[in-house]
């Protein structure tokens, strides 16, 4: 008996679905307030925030800030609520502004 692959999906094929156009709002990172704590990264339901290096602080330590991948962000606003440093604010997309 020959067994053929049935309804088998390849890993992470969902990445081709850009969910970034779902929401009416989008998060804006205020870099000077961001402490790089990573809270938004662990809470983001769409796994679209990561910490990126933006040079070094005055003590020579690597400074990281949050960066949003707008291809997938659905604009739920969870990151702006969990941020303790007021470094993320939600803005309405151009398309939906009155």
């Amino acid at each position: 008996m020959k067994i053929t692959l049935g309804a088998v999906s390849r890993p992470l094929e969902s990445l081709k679905i850009k969910t970034g156009d779902w929401g009416t709002e989008y998060p804006v990172i205020i870099e000077e307030n961001c402490k790089g704590c990573g809270d938004c990264v662990v809470y983001c339901p769409d796994l679209c925030i990561e910490l990126v290096e933006v040079g070094k602080d005055e003590k020579g330590k690597v400074r990281k800030v949050a960066k949003v991948n707008y291809d997938y962000c659905k604009g739920c606003g969870t990151c702006s609520v969990v941020c303790k440093h007021e470094a993320i604010k939600m803005e309405i997309k151009e398309l939906y502004r009155g």
């Binding site: 991948n69 997938y72 739920c76 606003g77």
Partner: peptide
């Protein structure tokens, strides 16, 4: 990964 169909939030 990203791109799943969960509701926002």
């Amino acid at each position: 990964g990203s791109g799943h169909g969960a509701c926002p939030g």
